[in-house]
Design a protein around this nucleic acid. Sequence first.
DNA 1: CCTTTAATTTGTAATCATTACAATATGATA
DNA 2: TATCATATTGTAATGATTACAAATTAAAGG
Lengths: 140, 140
Amino acid sequence: MEKYVQILKKNCLKVTPQRLEILKYLDTHRTHPTADTIYSNLKNNNPSLSKTTVYNTLQHLDEHGLVYTLTISGSESRFDSNINPHHHFLCKICSNIIDIDIECPNVKKVEVGGHRIDEVHGYFKGVCASCLKESNNGED
Amino acid sequence: MEKYVQILKKNCLKVTPQRLEILKYLDTHRTHPTADTIYSNLKNNNPSLSKTTVYNTLQHLDEHGLVYTLTISGSESRFDSNINPHHHFLCKICSNIIDIDIECPNVKKVEVGGHRIDEVHGYFKGVCASCLKESNNGED
DNA sequence: CCTTTAATTTGTAATCATTACAATATGATA
DNA sequence: TATCATATTGTAATGATTACAAATTAAAGG
Protein backbone atom coordinates (compact mmCIF):
# COMPACT_ATOMS: atom_id res chain seq x y z
CA MET A 1 0.00 0.00 0.00
CA GLU A 2 2.96 2.26 0.65
CA LYS A 3 3.58 2.04 -3.08
CA TYR A 4 0.33 3.86 -3.80
CA VAL A 5 0.95 6.43 -1.09
CA GLN A 6 4.18 7.33 -2.82
CA ILE A 7 2.51 7.57 -6.22
CA LEU A 8 -0.08 10.00 -4.90
CA LYS A 9 2.47 12.11 -3.02
CA LYS A 10 4.76 12.26 -6.01
CA ASN A 11 1.86 13.70 -7.99
CA CYS A 12 0.83 16.21 -5.34
CA LEU A 13 -2.44 14.41 -4.76
CA LYS A 14 -3.81 14.31 -1.25
CA VAL A 15 -3.60 10.80 0.18
CA THR A 16 -7.04 9.41 1.06
CA PRO A 17 -8.20 5.85 1.70
CA GLN A 18 -10.53 6.04 -1.30
CA ARG A 19 -7.78 7.04 -3.69
CA LEU A 20 -5.50 4.33 -2.37
CA GLU A 21 -8.17 1.68 -2.86
CA ILE A 22 -8.96 2.80 -6.40
CA LEU A 23 -5.30 3.01 -7.35
CA LYS A 24 -4.68 -0.43 -5.91
CA TYR A 25 -7.70 -1.88 -7.68
CA LEU A 26 -6.55 -0.55 -11.04
CA ASP A 27 -3.03 -1.79 -10.46
CA THR A 28 -4.12 -5.30 -9.54
CA HIS A 29 -6.93 -5.64 -12.08
CA ARG A 30 -5.63 -5.08 -15.57
CA THR A 31 -9.05 -5.75 -17.09
CA HIS A 32 -9.88 -2.19 -18.19
CA PRO A 33 -12.77 -1.89 -15.73
CA THR A 34 -15.54 0.68 -15.95
CA ALA A 35 -16.13 3.20 -13.17
CA ASP A 36 -19.14 1.15 -12.10
CA THR A 37 -17.14 -2.07 -11.93
CA ILE A 38 -14.54 -0.42 -9.75
CA TYR A 39 -17.27 1.01 -7.53
CA SER A 40 -19.13 -2.29 -7.15
CA ASN A 41 -16.01 -4.21 -6.28
CA LEU A 42 -14.70 -1.73 -3.73
CA LYS A 43 -18.10 -1.08 -2.18
CA ASN A 44 -18.02 -4.39 -0.28
CA ASN A 45 -15.04 -3.49 1.84
CA ASN A 46 -15.71 0.25 1.76
CA PRO A 47 -19.43 0.64 2.40
CA SER A 48 -19.29 4.42 2.57
CA LEU A 49 -17.70 4.73 -0.86
CA SER A 50 -19.60 6.96 -3.26
CA LYS A 51 -19.73 6.51 -7.00
CA THR A 52 -19.05 10.20 -7.41
CA THR A 53 -15.75 9.70 -5.62
CA VAL A 54 -14.82 6.97 -8.06
CA TYR A 55 -15.52 9.29 -10.99
CA ASN A 56 -13.72 12.21 -9.38
CA THR A 57 -10.69 10.13 -8.50
CA LEU A 58 -10.42 8.56 -11.94
CA GLN A 59 -10.53 12.02 -13.45
CA HIS A 60 -7.74 13.24 -11.18
CA LEU A 61 -5.63 10.16 -11.89
CA ASP A 62 -6.13 10.68 -15.62
CA GLU A 63 -5.13 14.32 -15.40
CA HIS A 64 -1.92 13.29 -13.69
CA GLY A 65 -1.21 10.60 -16.25
CA LEU A 66 -1.66 7.80 -13.76
CA VAL A 67 -4.47 6.13 -15.68
CA TYR A 68 -5.52 6.08 -19.27
CA THR A 69 -9.19 6.61 -20.18
CA LEU A 70 -10.44 4.44 -23.03
CA THR A 71 -13.46 5.48 -25.08
CA ILE A 72 -13.26 2.44 -27.28
CA SER A 73 -16.71 1.06 -26.53
CA GLY A 74 -18.73 4.20 -27.10
CA SER A 75 -21.20 3.64 -24.31
CA GLU A 76 -18.91 3.80 -21.27
CA SER A 77 -15.37 4.76 -20.35
CA ARG A 78 -12.88 2.15 -19.30
CA PHE A 79 -9.77 2.72 -17.29
CA ASP A 80 -6.29 1.34 -17.75
CA SER A 81 -3.41 1.70 -15.33
CA ASN A 82 -0.92 0.34 -17.82
CA ILE A 83 0.95 3.52 -18.65
CA ASN A 84 3.25 2.02 -21.27
CA PRO A 85 2.02 3.09 -24.71
CA HIS A 86 0.01 0.28 -26.25
CA HIS A 87 -3.11 -0.32 -28.29
CA HIS A 88 -6.41 -1.99 -27.47
CA PHE A 89 -8.64 -4.58 -29.07
CA LEU A 90 -12.38 -4.69 -28.37
CA CYS A 91 -14.13 -7.98 -29.09
CA LYS A 92 -17.62 -7.45 -30.51
CA ILE A 93 -18.76 -10.79 -29.14
CA CYS A 94 -17.55 -10.93 -25.53
CA SER A 95 -16.87 -7.18 -25.09
CA ASN A 96 -13.49 -7.91 -23.53
CA ILE A 97 -10.72 -5.44 -24.12
CA ILE A 98 -7.31 -6.90 -24.83
CA ASP A 99 -3.97 -5.09 -24.70
CA ILE A 100 -2.16 -5.05 -28.00
CA ASP A 101 1.58 -4.46 -27.96
CA ILE A 102 2.35 -3.55 -31.48
CA GLU A 103 5.01 -1.62 -33.31
CA CYS A 104 3.44 1.73 -34.13
CA PRO A 105 5.49 4.67 -35.37
CA ASN A 106 2.68 7.11 -34.60
CA VAL A 107 2.76 6.80 -30.82
CA LYS A 108 6.07 8.66 -30.79
CA LYS A 109 4.73 11.65 -32.69
CA VAL A 110 4.37 14.91 -30.82
CA GLU A 111 2.70 16.85 -33.61
CA VAL A 112 0.93 16.22 -36.89
CA GLY A 113 -0.06 18.85 -39.41
CA GLY A 114 0.70 21.57 -36.90
CA HIS A 115 -1.54 20.05 -34.22
CA ARG A 116 0.02 19.27 -30.86
CA ILE A 117 -0.52 15.64 -29.87
CA ASP A 118 -1.02 14.85 -26.18
CA GLU A 119 -2.54 11.37 -26.48
CA VAL A 120 -2.55 8.59 -29.05
CA HIS A 121 -5.24 5.94 -28.97
CA GLY A 122 -5.10 2.88 -31.21
CA TYR A 123 -8.31 0.86 -31.15
CA PHE A 124 -8.91 -2.38 -33.00
CA LYS A 125 -12.39 -3.88 -33.14
CA GLY A 126 -13.31 -7.36 -34.24
CA VAL A 127 -13.61 -10.88 -32.86
CA CYS A 128 -11.02 -12.13 -30.39
CA ALA A 129 -9.15 -15.41 -30.74
CA SER A 130 -11.18 -17.06 -28.02
CA CYS A 131 -14.54 -16.16 -29.57
CA LEU A 132 -13.33 -17.12 -33.04
CA LYS A 133 -12.46 -20.56 -31.72
CA GLU A 134 -15.85 -20.98 -30.11
CA SER A 135 -17.74 -20.01 -33.24
CA ASN A 136 -15.67 -22.51 -35.25
CA ASN A 137 -16.52 -25.26 -32.80
CA GLY A 138 -20.18 -24.42 -33.18
CA GLU A 139 -19.99 -24.95 -36.94
CA ASP A 140 -18.33 -28.37 -36.69
CA MET B 1 -29.77 12.51 -55.31
CA GLU B 2 -29.71 9.58 -57.71
CA LYS B 3 -26.23 8.93 -56.38
CA TYR B 4 -27.60 8.13 -52.93
CA VAL B 5 -30.42 6.01 -54.34
CA GLN B 6 -27.81 3.86 -56.02
CA ILE B 7 -25.75 3.56 -52.86
CA LEU B 8 -28.75 2.35 -50.87
CA LYS B 9 -29.87 -0.10 -53.59
CA LYS B 10 -26.39 -1.47 -53.97
CA ASN B 11 -26.44 -2.28 -50.27
CA CYS B 12 -29.90 -3.84 -50.27
CA LEU B 13 -31.26 -1.01 -48.14
CA LYS B 14 -34.81 0.13 -48.77
CA VAL B 15 -34.81 3.60 -50.31
CA THR B 16 -36.61 6.14 -48.13
CA PRO B 17 -36.57 9.95 -48.16
CA GLN B 18 -35.12 9.96 -44.64
CA ARG B 19 -32.21 7.74 -45.57
CA LEU B 20 -31.50 9.78 -48.66
CA GLU B 21 -31.43 12.99 -46.67
CA ILE B 22 -29.14 11.59 -44.00
CA LEU B 23 -26.79 10.08 -46.56
CA LYS B 24 -26.69 13.34 -48.46
CA TYR B 25 -26.06 15.33 -45.30
CA LEU B 26 -23.13 13.14 -44.33
CA ASP B 27 -21.69 13.27 -47.82
CA THR B 28 -21.86 17.05 -48.03
CA HIS B 29 -20.84 17.82 -44.43
CA ARG B 30 -17.50 16.26 -43.65
CA THR B 31 -17.51 17.71 -40.15
CA HIS B 32 -18.03 14.44 -38.21
CA PRO B 33 -21.47 15.50 -36.96
CA THR B 34 -23.28 13.95 -34.02
CA ALA B 35 -26.67 12.28 -34.45
CA ASP B 36 -28.25 15.33 -32.85
CA THR B 37 -26.53 17.73 -35.22
CA ILE B 38 -27.75 15.75 -38.21
CA TYR B 39 -31.25 15.67 -36.76
CA SER B 40 -31.36 19.40 -36.02
CA ASN B 41 -30.15 20.37 -39.45
CA LEU B 42 -32.49 18.09 -41.36
CA LYS B 43 -35.49 18.85 -39.17
CA ASN B 44 -36.02 22.23 -40.83
CA ASN B 45 -36.78 20.83 -44.24
CA ASN B 46 -38.18 17.54 -42.92
CA PRO B 47 -40.47 18.48 -40.04
CA SER B 48 -41.71 14.95 -39.53
CA LEU B 49 -38.22 13.53 -39.06
CA SER B 50 -37.71 11.63 -35.83
CA LYS B 51 -34.48 11.43 -33.92
CA THR B 52 -34.98 7.69 -33.58
CA THR B 53 -34.90 7.43 -37.36
CA VAL B 54 -31.59 9.25 -37.43
CA TYR B 55 -30.13 6.80 -34.93
CA ASN B 56 -31.61 3.78 -36.72
CA THR B 57 -30.39 4.93 -40.10
CA LEU B 58 -26.90 5.69 -38.88
CA GLN B 59 -26.72 2.23 -37.38
CA HIS B 60 -27.81 0.63 -40.64
CA LEU B 61 -25.34 2.69 -42.64
CA ASP B 62 -22.57 1.72 -40.24
CA GLU B 63 -23.44 -1.97 -40.50
CA HIS B 64 -23.14 -1.72 -44.28
CA GLY B 65 -19.84 0.11 -44.07
CA LEU B 66 -21.29 3.31 -45.49
CA VAL B 67 -20.38 5.42 -42.47
CA TYR B 68 -17.78 5.17 -39.79
CA THR B 69 -18.78 5.65 -36.16
CA LEU B 70 -16.25 7.56 -34.07
CA THR B 71 -16.16 7.15 -30.29
CA ILE B 72 -13.28 9.54 -29.91
CA SER B 73 -14.99 12.05 -27.63
CA GLY B 74 -16.38 9.67 -25.04
CA SER B 75 -19.62 11.48 -24.47
CA GLU B 76 -21.22 11.16 -27.90
CA SER B 77 -20.75 9.31 -31.17
CA ARG B 78 -19.74 11.14 -34.29
CA PHE B 79 -20.25 9.99 -37.83
CA ASP B 80 -17.93 10.09 -40.80
CA SER B 81 -18.84 9.29 -44.38
CA ASN B 82 -15.22 9.32 -45.48
CA ILE B 83 -14.69 5.63 -46.07
CA ASN B 84 -11.01 5.83 -46.95
CA PRO B 85 -8.98 4.61 -44.00
CA HIS B 86 -7.68 7.57 -42.05
CA HIS B 87 -7.14 8.73 -38.50
CA HIS B 88 -8.73 11.48 -36.43
CA PHE B 89 -7.57 14.30 -34.22
CA LEU B 90 -9.73 15.71 -31.44
CA CYS B 91 -8.88 19.19 -30.20
CA LYS B 92 -9.38 19.53 -26.45
CA ILE B 93 -9.99 23.26 -26.81
CA CYS B 94 -12.45 23.65 -29.68
CA SER B 95 -13.70 20.03 -29.77
CA ASN B 96 -13.32 19.93 -33.54
CA ILE B 97 -12.37 16.64 -35.12
CA ILE B 98 -9.83 16.81 -37.91
CA ASP B 99 -9.06 14.09 -40.46
CA ILE B 100 -5.48 12.88 -40.31
CA ASP B 101 -4.07 11.19 -43.37
CA ILE B 102 -1.03 9.47 -42.08
CA GLU B 103 1.07 6.50 -43.04
CA CYS B 104 -0.01 3.71 -40.69
CA PRO B 105 1.00 0.10 -41.25
CA ASN B 106 -1.64 -1.15 -38.83
CA VAL B 107 -4.68 -0.19 -40.87
CA LYS B 108 -3.83 -2.95 -43.32
CA LYS B 109 -3.75 -5.66 -40.69
CA VAL B 110 -6.51 -8.24 -40.74
CA GLU B 111 -5.48 -10.04 -37.57
CA VAL B 112 -3.29 -9.51 -34.54
CA GLY B 113 -2.42 -12.13 -31.94
CA GLY B 114 -5.06 -14.43 -33.37
CA HIS B 115 -7.82 -11.82 -33.10
CA ARG B 116 -9.73 -10.96 -36.27
CA ILE B 117 -9.66 -7.23 -36.96
CA ASP B 118 -12.73 -5.64 -38.54
CA GLU B 119 -12.06 -2.00 -37.74
CA VAL B 120 -9.04 0.12 -36.95
CA HIS B 121 -9.42 3.45 -35.19
CA GLY B 122 -6.53 5.84 -34.73
CA TYR B 123 -7.33 8.75 -32.43
CA PHE B 124 -5.03 11.62 -31.59
CA LYS B 125 -5.98 14.08 -28.87
CA GLY B 126 -4.36 17.42 -28.19
CA VAL B 127 -4.56 21.03 -29.30
CA CYS B 128 -5.13 21.85 -32.96
CA ALA B 129 -3.00 24.24 -34.97
CA SER B 130 -5.67 26.90 -34.93
CA CYS B 131 -6.10 26.85 -31.15
CA LEU B 132 -2.34 26.74 -30.61
CA LYS B 133 -2.01 29.90 -32.66
CA GLU B 134 -4.72 31.65 -30.69
CA SER B 135 -3.18 30.77 -27.33
CA ASN B 136 0.16 32.10 -28.54
CA ASN B 137 -1.41 35.38 -29.59
CA GLY B 138 -2.95 35.71 -26.15
CA GLU B 139 0.47 35.50 -24.53
CA ASP B 140 2.03 38.22 -26.71
C1' DC C 1 -52.83 0.48 -60.91
C1' DC C 2 -54.18 -2.03 -56.69
C1' DT C 3 -53.02 -5.37 -52.90
C1' DT C 4 -50.19 -7.29 -49.77
C1' DT C 5 -46.54 -7.63 -46.62
C1' DA C 6 -42.50 -6.78 -44.39
C1' DA C 7 -39.71 -3.08 -43.21
C1' DT C 8 -39.49 1.72 -41.75
C1' DT C 9 -40.80 5.74 -39.32
C1' DT C 10 -42.51 8.14 -35.48
C1' DG C 11 -43.22 9.79 -30.63
C1' DT C 12 -42.94 8.81 -26.12
C1' DA C 13 -41.07 6.72 -22.33
C1' DA C 14 -37.28 4.33 -20.29
C1' DT C 15 -32.36 3.48 -19.53
C1' DC C 16 -27.74 4.23 -18.40
C1' DA C 17 -23.42 6.67 -17.75
C1' DT C 18 -21.89 10.77 -16.08
C1' DT C 19 -22.02 15.37 -13.83
C1' DA C 20 -23.71 19.19 -10.70
C1' DC C 21 -24.20 20.62 -6.33
C1' DA C 22 -24.36 21.53 -1.45
C1' DA C 23 -23.51 19.69 3.05
C1' DT C 24 -20.31 17.11 5.73
C1' DA C 25 -15.94 15.15 6.75
C1' DT C 26 -11.00 14.88 6.56
C1' DG C 27 -5.83 15.28 5.28
C1' DA C 28 -2.03 18.37 5.59
C1' DT C 29 0.26 22.07 7.60
C1' DA C 30 1.68 25.19 11.11
C1' DT D 1 -4.41 20.86 18.09
C1' DA D 2 -6.62 24.46 15.19
C1' DT D 3 -7.24 25.84 10.66
C1' DC D 4 -8.42 25.59 6.03
C1' DA D 5 -8.47 24.00 1.66
C1' DT D 6 -9.69 19.92 -0.41
C1' DA D 7 -12.11 15.47 -0.68
C1' DT D 8 -16.18 12.72 0.07
C1' DT D 9 -20.92 11.75 0.03
C1' DG D 10 -25.81 11.37 -1.52
C1' DT D 11 -29.14 13.07 -4.23
C1' DA D 12 -30.84 15.18 -8.09
C1' DA D 13 -30.17 16.58 -12.79
C1' DT D 14 -28.40 15.96 -17.42
C1' DG D 15 -27.79 14.13 -21.90
C1' DA D 16 -27.09 10.52 -25.27
C1' DT D 17 -29.06 6.48 -26.71
C1' DT D 18 -32.47 2.67 -26.85
C1' DA D 19 -37.03 0.18 -26.28
C1' DC D 20 -41.40 -0.20 -27.83
C1' DA D 21 -45.87 -0.14 -30.07
C1' DA D 22 -48.75 2.14 -33.37
C1' DA D 23 -49.03 4.25 -37.84
C1' DT D 24 -46.94 4.62 -42.31
C1' DT D 25 -44.75 3.32 -46.48
C1' DA D 26 -41.51 1.02 -50.04
C1' DA D 27 -41.26 -2.84 -52.95
C1' DA D 28 -43.02 -6.77 -55.44
C1' DG D 29 -46.59 -9.26 -57.86
C1' DG D 30 -50.83 -9.77 -60.09
